Simulated scan of single mutants.
Amino acid sequence: MAQRVQDSEDFPNGLKGGVVAIGNFDGVHRGHQEVLSQAVDRSRRLSLPTNVLTFEPHPRTVFRPDEPVYRLTPAPLKARILDLMGFDAVVEQGFDRDFASRSAENFVTDILVGRLGVSHVVTGYDFHFGKGRQGNPDFLIDAGKRFGFGVTLVEAYADENAEVVSSSRIRDALAGGDLGLANGLLGYRYAVTAEVLHGKKLGRSLGYPTGNMALPPETALMPGIYAVRFRRADGSVHDGVASFGRRPTVEDDGAALLLETFVFDFSGDLYGETCQVSFVSRLRGEEKFDGLDQLVAQMKTDEAEARAVLGQLKPLSPLDAAMTFDMTSGSTE
């Protein structure tokens, strides 16, 4: 399991001298994976530790606190994905205005050389760092020559339509209900993790008990009904159908957004467990029905459609197989 290090000051001596990928990597999408894969490949060739330096909270949240960024992969989920990609450690460097005021030279000498002892840095072609973004790729390459570490800059990654893959494109796709596009840009099925909470247990009385999760208020996923894969804390994976929305048939206007997942063929207790929901297909939008009978009839239709979709599911990539499928069984079918 990749070691999560909350600050570079606490970086273990045994992991120093490795290859370090640097970036925010929110979403760990296909463009990020190009940077990260090059770091993993180089470290394996050189038999060196493979590390990631990222920043918490997201810098945009620090500079624009009134506009919190919709995090595609909060720190725990990001660390899990990076672990699946083969990294030894994830440094979640605390980021605040004091840290942002460091000079580019100080970032290199104190963080990269002093704390991490980097042998090689891999980052995107447009990586800037230090006060006023004074550190640019040329500065980093020059610093590498002065301090004895290598630098690899990775060009922007474009999709099949020659459009650059970015976190903002994925956020827009999710907000617009285009889950297929979002998943294609990510290279794996979009996922969220949260603790299962007690609810009003209305679903249980209707024959559809659900595991309820409260997602961050800035979550921009379009409300609707989704075919999903549900991963428990023990690693087991189950098919399901999920509703993300305000439950207009049974709640007053203005109810909080809630993710409710009906896990197929499961009767255990999920309360208090932190689970992962991977979104496979958007089935329909959220609707208000005239009564519970109509709601239950539609839920039966949703269940049948979700079962059909999930019964034919194939991995998008090795990373998707590890995240969305039950790897303990040795099968991705």
Rank of each mutant, 00 (worst) to 15 (best):
L283V: 10
E286Q: 02
L283A: 07
C275Q: 08
C275H: 04
G291I: 06
D290V: 06
K300N: 08
K300C: 09
C275T: 13
D252R: 09
T301D: 10
F266S: 09
Q298P: 08
R282S: 05
R307P: 14
R284P: 06
V280C: 06
L257T: 01
F266R: 09
Q276M: 11
F279S: 06
D302T: 01
K300Y: 09
E305S: 12
D252A: 14
G268L: 06
L283R: 07
A308G: 15
Q294Y: 09
E286T: 02
Q276Y: 06
F262L: 04
L258H: 03
G285F: 01
A306F: 08
G268Q: 13
Q294T: 12
L257Y: 03
K288R: 12
S278R: 02
S281N: 08
L270G: 00
A304W: 14
Y271T: 13
G254F: 02
T301K: 13
G285E: 04
G268D: 13
Q276I: 08
M299A: 05
L258I: 09
T274F: 02
F289L: 10
L257Q: 03
V250W: 07
S281Y: 11
A304H: 15
Q276N: 05
D302K: 01
T274H: 07
K300F: 09
D290S: 07
L257E: 00
E286A: 00
V280E: 01
G254H: 05
Q294P: 03
L257V: 02
L257W: 01
T261R: 01
A256L: 05
G285P: 04
R282W: 04
T274D: 09
E286I: 00
G291H: 06
A304C: 12
M299E: 02
E305T: 15
D293M: 08
S267M: 07
V263S: 02
E260P: 04
L270Q: 00
F262Y: 10
L292W: 15
V263A: 03
F264T: 06
G268C: 06
R307H: 14
E305C: 12
D252S: 13
V277Q: 00
E305A: 15
V250E: 12
E273S: 08
V296G: 03
M299C: 08
V250D: 12
D302W: 00
A256P: 06
F266A: 10
E303R: 07
L258M: 10
S278V: 03
D290I: 08
L270I: 05
E273M: 07
G268N: 10
G272E: 09
V263G: 00
E273L: 02
A304P: 15
S267G: 13
E303K: 04
R284T: 07
T301I: 15
G254T: 09
V250N: 10
G291R: 03
V250F: 15
V280S: 05
L258D: 01
E260I: 03
A306T: 14
Y271V: 14
D252H: 07
V250H: 11
L295H: 13
S281D: 12
L295S: 12
A255G: 11
S281K: 12
F264W: 04
G291K: 03
Q298L: 06
S281R: 12
L283K: 08
V263E: 02
L259F: 07
S267I: 14
F266V: 11
D253Q: 15
Y271A: 11
L258R: 01
G272R: 06
A304E: 15
S278A: 08
L292M: 14
L292G: 15
T274Q: 10
T301A: 11
L258V: 12
E251M: 14
E260Y: 08
G272Y: 06
G285S: 04
S267F: 10
